[in-house]
Every structure is written in C-alpha cells, then in structure tokens.
Design a binder for these strands. Sequence first.
DNA 1: AATCGAGTAAACAACG
DNA 2: TCGTTGTTTACTCGAT
Length: 675
Amino acid sequence: MMQESGTETKSNGSAIQNGSSGGNHLLECGSLREGRSNGEAPAVDVGAADLAHVQQQQALQVARQLLLQQQQQQQVSGLKSPKRNDKQPALQVPVSVAMMTPQVITPQQMQQILQQQVLSPQQLQVLLQQQQALMLQQQQLQEFYKKQQEQLQLQLLQQQHAGKQPKEQQQVATQQLAFQQQLLQMQQLQQQHLLSLQRQGLLTIQPGQPALPLQPLAQGMIPAELQQLWKEVTSAHTAEETTGNNHSSLDLTTTCVSSSAPSKTSLIMNPHASTNGQLSVHTPKRESLSHEEHSHSHPLYGHGVCKWPGCEAVCEDFQSFLKHLNSEHALDDRSTAQCRVQMQVVQQLELQLAKDKERLQAMMTHLHVKSTEPKAAPQPLNLVSSVTLSKSASEASPQSLPHTPTTPTAPITPVTQGPSVITTTSMHTVGPIRRRYSDKYNVPISSADIAQNQEFYKNAEVRPPFTYASLIRQAILESPEKQLTLNEIYNWFTRMFAYFRRNAATWKNAVRHNLSLHKCFVRVENVKGAVWTVDEVEFQKRRPQKISGNPSLIKNMQSSHAYCTPLNAALQASMAENSIPLYTTASMGNPTLGNLASAIREELNGAMEHTNSNESDSSPGRSPMQAVHPVHVKEEPLDPEEAEGPLSLVTTANHSPDFDHDRDYEDEPVNEDME
DNA sequence: AATCGAGTAAACAACG
DNA sequence: TCGTTGTTTACTCGAT
C-alpha cells in the first residue's frame, strides 16, 4: 500500500495535466461563409406576398428582440455545447459550435411565426415537415459525428502509447474533415431553409445577428413540440390574410460568430451540459411574445435609453424606442457593421470567459479538486488547497461509496461550479495529505467556514485539512478534563469526521504515532490506564517552524487590526445562522464547533505570535477556551500514585453529550468499553 | 540539494 | 492467545 502512494500521486498529477490540457481550436468558418454565399436558392416558395405592412413591422420587431435575447442567452450560458470526454487529447480534431449546432428554427422563432399568423395552415404544415426532416438529419449526423469522435480518440490514445503517428489516425482525421464538410453542407441547407423563411417574411433577421446560426440544437423545437404548437395554432387559426414584401437581404455571413468560447473548461463546468453529447438546455416556454413583455426586457432598451452600441438615444417610452430602432438602426450597412463589431466584442468576451474558466479549472485542479466528472465532492472553498484524501481511502473503497449527503450547512462550493464539478461522489482518488492549512497558515480561514465545515466534516467523507496533531489536541482540549484515553480520542475522530469512519487501522496508527512522536502529547497514567493530555507550551513550540509561505498573508493577518475581533464576530454570526450556541468556555454545552474554531484560531494566533518574535505565549490573541485551559506541562509521565488524584475521576466518563456509544463503524468497531 | 514536517506503514514490546 | 496500547523506525512526499 505504501509503495503505491507515490505512484498514485504521480498519476494524479498526470491526470491533472490531461484534464487541463488540450485547448479547443475551432475551425475557421470561412468555408461556411463561402458555402452560404453560394446557396441562396429558396427552398420553399410560399405565397405569402400580401403581408400587411403593420404586421411586417411587428414581425420585424419581434424577430429582432428574439434574436437579441437568444444572443444574450447564449452569452450567459457560456454557449452550451455537447459535453465530451474531459480528457480530450490535444490532437483531437476541433469542431466549431456552429458545426455542432446546426440551424434549427427555435421555439421562439416558430412561436413568432405562428403568432404572426403569416402563413396558412397548409404553409405551416410544409414548414413543419421541413423542419422535422432537417432535425432528423441533424440527429443522424450528430450521432455519426459522435462515433467519429470516439473513434478518433481511441486512435489518439493508441497513438500516444505507441508514440507514433499511425496511418489510421490520419484516415480518421480525414474522415473527420469529410464529416465536417458534410455538416457544413447540412448547415448551408438549413440556412437556405431559414433564408426562405426570411424571404417569406416569417423571420426577419437582423444582419450580423449570430443567434440563429448559433442556436443550439436543443433549442430547436422537437417534432413533438412542433406538432403541439401546430395543433394549437391551427385550432385557433383565423383567416387573417398576410401580405406584403419583406426584407430579403438576409445577411448570413456572420454565421461563424461561433467563437471558441465553448472551451473544454466551460464544458466541464457547465452544469447543464449533459454527457451524451446532446444539450440539456431547457426548452424555452412557448410564452406569448407580446410587445408589452418585450418592452420590459428588450436588451436594446433600458432606462429610457437606446442601448444600441454607440447610440444612447433617449426614448421616452417603448413605442418611441421602437420607432427609433426602426429608423435609426434599420437594416443598412451601418447597422450591419455595428452588429459585426458587437459580435467581435461578444466573441472576445466569450474567449475571455473561456480562458478565465480554464484558469479557474486549472487552479482547482492544482488545488487537488478533482473536477473530472462525475468525481469530486462538495467541499469547502477554503479547503481546496489542502483537502486531499489518502490513498488508503481510495484503495479501501474503490467502488462508488454511499456518500453521506452534505448538510444544508455544508460549505459553499466554488461559484460557477455546477454539479459536474461538485458532486457528492468519489473524493477518494486523491493522494495523501502533506500539508494542512491549519498548520501552514497560508490559507485564510474564514470563521464561517470553520463553523460550517465542522458540520460538513461530520457528514461528508472529506478528509479534514488538519494535521493529526491538531486534531488530537483538539479532541483532548474539548474534553472537560482536557485529557482523553486513546480510545476516546478515536471516538472523537469518528464522531467528528466522517472521513475517519473508515480505514481505521491507518488513521488510528497515525494517531498513536503522533501521540508518541510529539512532545506536546503527554501520557498520564492513572489507575485504569492512561490518558493523554496536551502540553500547550510544547504545542506552541512546534509551530513556529511550520510558518511558511505567503508572507504577505501573514502580514495581512497581522495588519488587519484586531484580527480576532472580526473573526469572532463572523464566527458568532455564522453560528447564529446555524443555530449553534455560542461558545465562551470549553465547558459550555455542545462546544465542539466553537472549540474547534477557537483551536484553529489559536493556531492562527500562534502563527502571528511567532512571527512577532518577541511575543510571549500570553498574547491577547488567546481564545477564551484556551484561557481556561489548564495547561499540562509535564515532561515525565505522572507517577501512577500521583495520578490517582482528581484526574482519575474522569478517565471513564464520557463527557460528550452526544457520544456515540452505539456507533459501529465499518472497518473497525470502536471499542467503547475498553476501560 | 538539503532540510524539515507530516503521513503512512510496519515491527516490536508491554499489558490486560 | 489475542487485541490494544505505546514506541520506534523507515520511507515518501511536499514545502521551503
């Protein structure tokens, strides 16, 4: 087991590297643009030539709003794209989102079409059929594409092992290219389809709007939805005639706005990304898209100002804004150019977002948070730097463990990390702990974290980021008499930390080892055996050597005047939030949370004290708990006869109100009645 | 590169 | 005899 420790750690490192490597290089969309310029033949020629001018304007507005909203939606959602293998080799043939998300009429668009009632039911039927056929094609293509991707990855894996460039890979790559071309053709087809719609006045697409081409597949309506919509509309269809001409200069050259934003990291982190290559984006509701609704949420209108880039024209109300929009930002070269600029901006922002996400991912990976779905577990944000699990845990439980769900007070998980990153599964793949922040003082500890984490560690099988020595000391200090038998220390571990409910042989050995090794733990004999106490002086002695790392942090800790004051305040606030009794002394009821918190704070204080080289142990930073602690300073074990005094009274007393006598932990039943 | 602290494993002895 | 407790050594790893 021990020999595997190193290898496992190394393998973790390699996994981390794999996980953070391989940026996605997306295909240029020049070919797409080129293909589109060639194919403008309308696929459908529906006789909708008599659209009324008013309706036309309305459709124009609605379509613009829709498309803008969709664009915003995509920006917010980080361009959801099919989730693929996390460990994509860097050589993987990249695919642009545009290719993976062919154009499909979105529900909003379809809704708009239907609401405008610009088509007869027969015409809609035709459109419906076309749409269904297109979607069927897309699904088939995407399935094929997925297979191709998997095949390619297999090839690449083999190639990595062999260190050569086999011909098969080139063949697969060629196939990939061919398939991508096929997808391009598919998109062109769909764009033609949309173009035809647009020419019929069904859709008015502002030039440069990337929404349509970027529309993810899942946002397209599934046939069932279309059918349902179709029924609704046909049942309520009135014979309203629609006439008129439309803008026909649909500018689709901006289709390739699909940037490289959906990087791998965004895939990993996107909680909505499903694993089957499809998107789990919620299907937008078929809500009514009246002007009133849009007037409150028009992306280009807010606070009485037109938000068109570089405009900022004041519009008294939404109607005037619409007029302004139609007049000033009509479909012309200028607006088109502005749209393109805006697209560039969006693209850059998406790129930046992708980079930042990737950076975050790398940071978390570096901090031993395994983000490989479905691994990783909820853990406190402040602990990620040091929370790792021993290999023994992973070896003892290679299977999926029935993890205890985290409590409501579980520490907050990193932001933007969806379930794909923070799940309750498997934390047992990480290497052994080498550093704990409680001893290193280089990670800021929030008191809220402490209080919350205590509850967290009770339930979540996450290794506490404290050294054995710190935990042993804490266990002893929490006891009323500041002394515990070995078995009681064991029980404290298992009671306070779910992690120590397994692999008992390992950590118990470590506890014994620490008790013997460190001078700060003093064995005191009594009639029925021996108890362990803490020599605070020795414990404080051993810490200065471990002050390390971030000097600025220590400086900050020192410079933050009255460090303990905000800590206490925050701690109390946090405990109040969690309905935890405030601690004042160690003898208070249920003092565990406060004690642990204060103990850790002591360590922080100790670090600060020792950085101030002239400080003595009796610095004002001492916690209330420590103030009342009787400090045992004994270099030699007590004479058994001496120990028969008051100390012996508590040797068998289970002082903790919630002491678990009946808890039977799986690896090794705790011997509760040893004495 | 050397050193140190921490974690892990294991051998061993004493003891009940 | 067996399990627990306690000590010690050896080793690895991460940080400095």
